[in-house]
Amino acid sequence: MIEIKNLHKSYPIGKDSLHVLKGLNLHIKEGEFVSIMGSSGSGKSTLLNIVGLLDIHDEGEYFLDGQKIENLDEKKAAILRNKFLGFVFQSFNLIGYKTALENVALPLYYKGIGRKERQKIALEYLDKVGLKDWAKHLPSELSGGQKQRVAIARALVTKPKVVLADEPTGALDSTTSSSVMEMLKDINREGMTVFVITHEEEIAAETDRIVRLKDGVIISDELTHKKAKA
């Protein structure tokens, strides 16, 4: 599903440039539940941005669903994002003036689906994350856990191939965190590829495969015990 070969990325800082990713090789197959671990500055967010088509790599190759990603202009990237990827952010990134339902329906709007159909699908997904009764509420009227569930519903609504979660539990307490992780597990069980970025060991332990990143290189890539046992 995701194949990365010798990926490099550096950011210009003044006259110098900061080499963030130094030749990553990573292969994630369809239906995997992978976490990327690393302290801040390890390059994990940069990796996610590149995988999520929010940023462009300098060197190396990136294949998403067999399609080579290169010479991507903004428009193509937007269409691919809409088609293949669902995002879950640490700070939820819901649009404040839209209700839960409208937030979930937004990716469908950019997919060009009609209003009635949009609302129907969005409501289905809100039901799936247990928030059907909160459909008409604004994000400000929801708890952190509820917001993240709305964000997950929004990430899933276009039936993407990969769900990218950037510190999905970073802003949540431990109880809500585990319920969000349960939800991601459920999604994975249904066959979707889930890609989690975290710096918390407990969260990473919930996934099937942990990739550790340090200073822009992969230092370890192993299956968790859970997966190994199974």
């Binding site: 903004e74 428009k75 937007a78 269409i79 994002r81 809409n82 990134n93 404040g96 950019y110 276009t158």
Partner: peptide, 16 residues
């Protein structure tokens, strides 16, 4: 800016 960023992440093209 933030709202527009979200919209872009969700698949909005620059033109839209």
């Amino acid at each position: 800016t933030k709202e527009l960023g979200i919209r872009k992440a969700l698949g909005a093209t620059p033109k839209s």
